[in-house]
């Protein structure tokens, strides 16, 4: 089983495909669940406090807006934990959306640089039924080819 970063990070369809293929999808919902079930913090709705944008400084400089750094405090660790990734481009809003395009750019960049590029699938969102079938088959084929967790290399290890 491989930990797969998905983009959009809140896409139920992608998460479902990854799960069906026997891998673990890394989704933002899990990150949020961790935050909101924390008993020590009371900062509804997501329990993101002013400290979280500070944690986001690991991924973006201080001049980057607080909303981007707050989002990165959730998404950055997901990329770090991931062994593979699926990035779907040109998605409609109801497929999944992180809300902020600056965050999108940064998190995709992190995925591309942090992971072995052979373990990252980049694919466009389908616009018709034929493309839709191809879309699903391509993702499933990609997931089948993924190595086990112990064999997966991070981008920095790539030879």
């Amino acid at each position: 089983m491989v930990k797969v970063f998905i983009y959009p990070t809140n896409s139920f369809i992608l998460a479902d495909l990854v799960t069906r293929a026997g891998h673990e999808p890394l989704v933002i919902m899990n990150q949020v669940r961790e935050k909101v079930t924390s008993l020590s913090v009371d900062s509804p709705p997501l329990n993101i406090t002013p400290e979280d944008p500070n944690l986001g400084l690991k991924y973006a400089a201080i001049e980057v807006p607080a909303g981007v750094r707050g989002r990165m405090s959730l998404m950055g660790p997901m990329v770090e934990e991931a062994e593979a990734g699926i990035i779907v481009e040109d998605t409609p809003a109801d497929f999944g959306c992180s809300g902020c395009n600056r965050t999108n750019e940064l998190v995709k960049y992190l995925a591309r640089t942090n992971l072995d590029r052979s373990n990252v699938l980049e694919i466009r969102y389908p616009t018709n039924e034929d493309q839709m079938h191809d879309f699903v088959y391509t993702i499933l084929e990609f997931l089948e080819t993924l190595p086990t967790g112990s064999e997966t290399k991070k981008g920095g290890d790539k030879k």
Binding site: D42, S43, P44, P45, L46, I48, T49, P50, E51, D52, P53, P65, A66, G67, G70, R71, L74, G99, C100
Partner: peptide
């Protein structure tokens, strides 16, 4: 807003 809940300011707003 563009997502005040991610900026750590929502409690201050509330």
């Amino acid at each position: 807003s563009c997502g005040t809940e991610y900026g750590g300011v929502q409690p201050a707003f509330e």
